[in-house]
């Protein structure tokens, strides 16, 4: 199908540290369709940011893609040279980072930082690029854009800086926008402004968004499709409704139970027990094994395979297999009893 813009197939990224190999992303697969919003959710250290960096190949020196494919319009970009990748970064795929305070260069004006990206990727002249920068700032709702382009990042508030980052990422009209925790550093009212802006721009420009966050609220707000990650692996993926209303992985279920709310004021939360996983000593089987209430022996020994539960809804959990076997047995038993 041509609608599949980006396909990640069995991606594996590791960091080679003094203490040993850290399998930050271990066998990750998902598809991104044109004009859709895909959410990647997980705890810190689950490998969600590393996934984004792997796609753009901006991993730190110790990190390496050691397996799998990343297909952009059917072409494997993991095989691209550095120069070819530079054409993709910013031009086909844009990225917004978490921290708007540190991801802008403090010694250049905002205008020059946006025009730099435009000059690099399009054949506009300097004057055209400058005009485009003003236009982009207006698009993302920065007031008095003509004055703002001459300002330095420190003169702007956090929300404004994030808008500048979005303007920069969108200035070359990428097909895919990767947003790595774009609102985590912002206050809720500013977060609401930025999310609203992203939704509006997505409708207007028709790009696809990969939204990386730990906030299930943001995910529910923004995303069509969701990928839940734990310990570098996919636990579950499917539509937003599948994940929120019919979770089939024990970790997803635990995550949803952990969210506090006023409705649960007098109830106790049901937290996931135990501590986060030690990435240096990954278990052989399911990474969630040690914290799972329904863990079985097979979970310890073998990593679970991904099973399609409903069309488009996949989960990697042995409990599902067990349940299917039980159901079959029960059905068989009922038939026998009937005869």
């Amino acid at each position: 199908m041509s609608a599949k813009l980006l396909q990640v197939k069995n991606l594996r990224t590791s960091f080679f540290t003094d203490a040993g190999e850290v399998k930050a992303v271990n066998g990750l697969s998902f598809d991104l369709e044109k004009g859709k919003v895909l959410g990647i959710v997980g705890e810190s250290g689950s490998g969600k940011s590393v996934t984004a960096y792997s796609i753009l190949r901006i991993l730190p020196e110790t990190g390496k893609i050691i397996g799998g494919e990343i297909l952009l319009d059917g072409e494997d970009i993991t095989k691209y040279s550095k120069k070819e990748m530079r054409e993709i970064r910013g031009c086909r795929i844009g990225i917004i980072f978490q921290d708007p305070m540190t991801s802008l260069n403090p010694v250049y004006t905002i205008g020059s930082q946006i025009t730099e990206a435009i000059l690099l990727h399009t054949d506009r002249t300097r004057a055209q690029a400058a005009a485009r920068a003003v236009e982009m700032l207006a698009l993302v709702g920065v007031n008095e854009p003509a004055r703002r382009v001459k300002q330095y990042p420190h003169e702007l508030s956090g929300g404004m800086r994030q808008r500048v980052m979005i303007a920069m990422a969108l200035s070359c009209e990428p097909d895919i926008l990767i947003a790595d925790e774009p609102t985590t550093a912002l206050d809720v009212t500013i977060q609401a402004q930025i999310l609203e802006l992203m939704q509006e721009l997505q409708k207007k420009l028709g790009m696809a968004i990969i939204m990386i966050t730990h906030d299930l609220g943001v995910i529910a707000d923004m995303c069509d499709e969701i990928v839940v990650m734990y310990g570098g692996r996919i636990c579950e993926r499917g539509s937003a409704d599948d994940i929120f209303y019919n979770p089939r992985h024990e970790y997803t279920k635990g995550l949803l139970h952990s969210i506090p709310s006023a409705a649960k004021l007098d109830e106790k939360l049901v937290p996931i027990g135990g501590s986060p996983i030690d990435m240096l000593n990954m278990p052989k089987g399911c990474p969630f094994f040690a914290r799972c209430d329904r863990a079985m022996k097979i979970c310890l020994d073998e990593p679970p395979e991904e099973i399609e539960i409903n069309p488009g809804h996949f989960a990697s959990c042995w409990v599902n297999v067990q349940q299917m076997l039980d159901d079959e047995k029960a059905a068989g038993g009922a038939e026998e009893a009937g005869q």
Partner: peptide, 27 residues
């Protein structure tokens, strides 16, 4: 009102229905 309406709701159906009150400007 705007603070409460801005809080993301971890429930897709509810968050599709509600309306955020977006505050103008910065702090």
């Amino acid at each position: 009102q705007s603070l409460y309406s801005a809080v993301p709701i971890p429930d897709p159906k509810m968050s599709r229905q509600r309306r955020r009150i977006i505050l103008e400007g910065d702090v």
